[in-house]
Amino acid sequence: MIDSRTARWALGAAMAAGLAFIYLPLAVVLVNSFNASPTFGWPPTSLTTRWWSAAVDNAGVREATWTSIQVAAAATAIALVLGTLASMAVARYEFFGRDVVSLLLVLPIALPGIVTGIALNSLFTSFLGGLTLMTLIIGHATFCIVVVFNNATARLRRLSGSVEEASMDLGATRATTWRLVTFPALRGSLFAGGLLAFGLSFDEIIVTTFTAGPGIQTLPLWIFQNLFRPNQAPVVNVVAAVLVVVSVVPVYLANRLTGEQSLAGGRM
């Protein structure tokens, strides 16, 4: 399409403004994590890596990072197994209530996190003897499953079912068919879904608040609790910068891998 010079200029400006609106605050956080002034005078007069070493030396940050990694990894692993199985069931078999199951699987992404959080909290505290690291992992898995499920289902829909039939027709059992045909086809989207799930879990705070056992602190929880302590502010900036990188990189990679936007949508 051919647009007038003015129209092109206006559209370009609108896009720049939109992107700036989203990314400038993030850039400020990133730059401030190197800002030598502890009161964040702007523009920065000199840069330092002091806050970064302070963050690394901070035991609370280190523990919170380790907890976040554990939780994200475990929730992603659960999501990969359950999400893939669910997606195979929904995409490859006809059964009573299939559409309902499919909807129920995707619903957690739309449910307000606070509702999921309260519901899981009351379930865990009243029936399962209280909150632990495990309950936090299960809480995260509820929404991680959705991204894996969505990614795998999108791929399976494009992979003709007759390919799996052909494999069994040629003498391969169901398990061999999975190993030699279905899994190789799904590998890319499972990896993408896993990355997204990891990213989602890593910066989640609402469900985390309601499902983390006492004394368990993930990075977002740590930020939340230290945000208003003036002496911690520079370190909070560093942690925030790390969170941005850890959640953006997987989404970027996942997008590159799947080459489509059918990912989790709303929650990111």
Partner: peptide, 10 residues
């Protein structure tokens, strides 16, 4: 079987 959509392994 020879399938209608060939079903070759991509």
């Amino acid at each position: 079987t020879v399938f209608q959509d060939y079903a070759l392994f991509p």
